[in-house]
Amino acid sequence: MSDLFRPSRRVLLEALVLVLVAASAGLSLNYTLVMKAFTGRNVVIVPQASKSTVESQFPLPVDYEEIDNLLTEGHLLVDARDPHIFAEAHLPGAISLPLGEVDLLFEAFTARYPKETPLIIYCNGFGCPDSFDLGVRLIAEGYPKVQVYEGGFPEWRDRGRLLESGEAQ
């Protein structure tokens, strides 16, 4: 009975080949994505949005350790969470641009912040895709310098950093 569950050497080898083949296919198809993630950490180079390539353009991540430097360089923090959560607490100096209301607020946003403004978007931490989605949207709208702070609000709070409260202006 026990040999029922013991894979033969041949099966093990074939399984290994299977994984290698599939992984290579995945890697070659997503080569640019992976290379960007491994090499481009801090640099976002996005050419002017053209319709055909918009889908492949995505914001690159920024680590907690880099945030303070970037803020002193003039990056703008953008909070992608719901406005009522923003009002309870947000990162100091952040402006509110909830993903759910981006269509309504976008005009006012572009009027206030020129396209060359470097942006750092965050939302509710690693489980929250809103900052990514907002980043993709902003890049498509012509903001070339967009990064995402994935640790987001929870990481900032858990590190005991200062928070602000109050409604978005």
């Binding site: 994984v19 599939a22 296919a25 995945g26 198809l29 997503n30 994505l33 993630a37």
Partner: peptide, 10 residues
Amino acid sequence: YLVAATLPFV
């Protein structure tokens, strides 16, 4: 990203 690029294909 490495996982995201390969795992679905496996």
